[in-house]
Computed example of a mutant assay.
Amino acid sequence: MQQLKSYQSLLEKEFSKQKYGKQPVSLYEPIRYLMSLGGKRLRPMLTLLSYSLYKSDVKSVVPFAAAVEAFHNFTLMHDDIMDKAPLRRGKQTVHEKWNVNTAILSGDVMLVKVYDMFLNIEPAKLKLVLKAFNQCAAEVCEGQQWDMEFETTDVVSEAQYINMIRLKTAVLLGFSLELGAILADASEDDRKALREFGTNIGIGFQLKDDLLDAYADPEKFGKQVGGDIIANKKTFLLIKAREKAQGKIKRELAEWLAVKKFNKKQKVDAVKSIYNTLGVQTLAEKKVDQFFRKGFDNLERLSIHADARALLKNYAEALIGRQS
């Protein structure tokens, strides 16, 4: 636990000293604002934990872990525009606090800064890092596009949804771990195992987020609870509900999905009631566990002593029980 706190402190110090740029202030201030909102810092933490499996000088790779967090926040800035999200981590989203055009440009320059942050990686590793990063970044965009296309697709299968969240969310966790492994000179087999570990826990993590969107304590969640239901987002919960619903429940669910004008709380409560009747919350919880188990199986393939991976495993296990 103390080690995690130490890594967290190193990351926060790095974030606080990042300048990003000066003028115009309206371009760079949204970046500083978004990065200052905190969050779990999950992705850079995974980079540090991955590196620490092989080497002890973790401080030397903190700037590169910070680049992963900057990329993640770039995606959030643009995702929030596309989702018309009012809140991020309990605060106004960038496009709400400033405007949409500023949020687009700030996100663009934020991505440029990510590449700047990677440039100090030693030349022998830089090409490998950038190749892995570029693949990951492209897949994140593919996942976001699939997510938007699903909004106008009548039927989305469980397999299609899992693939979408793998691309949109999970591959970045996989890259975060692979980055630490590359920087630590890990073997190709270990790099692959860590990437797959991250991808599988990332899918589990997003499925958990789907659950929290519907069932979290509003004061702890930091986002609008029930936002996915209000927007008719085809989450795992909705996909399974549509698969299982019959008769009256099927008609009721269809009516809520079709209605244009409604009371938000009433819709959220009604759809959650359908979910509860059909048992889809339990199905989602089982699916979360399934992907975490797959991830832990990947972790067992590492060519290091079991004690060395305990901290990383414990950190990942904590994701299952999170409530915010």
Rank of each mutant, 00 (worst) to 15 (best):
Q8L: 15
Q3R: 14
A318Y: 01
S36C: 04
R195V: 02
P24A: 15
D289Y: 05
D80R: 09
K233H: 13
L53Y: 05
K17V: 03
N263V: 04
T199C: 09
L167A: 15
E219W: 08
E196Y: 01
Y115R: 09
K223T: 08
V271D: 01
L46R: 08
R43G: 06
L34W: 02
S56N: 12
S50I: 07
L4H: 14
E317Q: 15
W98D: 10
T47C: 10
A231M: 08
S157H: 13
E96T: 13
G174V: 05
R32F: 09
D189H: 05
I239M: 01
A124H: 04
V25H: 07
K233N: 12
D228W: 09
I165A: 13
G21Q: 09
D209T: 15
K168C: 12
W146F: 15
V61T: 07
K125G: 05
S26M: 11
G204F: 07
K17D: 00
P218T: 10
F74M: 08
Q92Y: 02
S176I: 08
D209A: 15
L119M: 07
W256C: 08
V100T: 14
Y51S: 09
L312M: 11
L48E: 10
D189A: 08
M45E: 01
L172Q: 11
I162D: 09
K5W: 11
K244M: 13
T93C: 13
H78W: 08
P24N: 14
L130P: 00
K13L: 07
A245W: 03
D108Y: 06
S50E: 06
A85N: 04
A245L: 03
L46T: 06
A310H: 08
D79M: 05
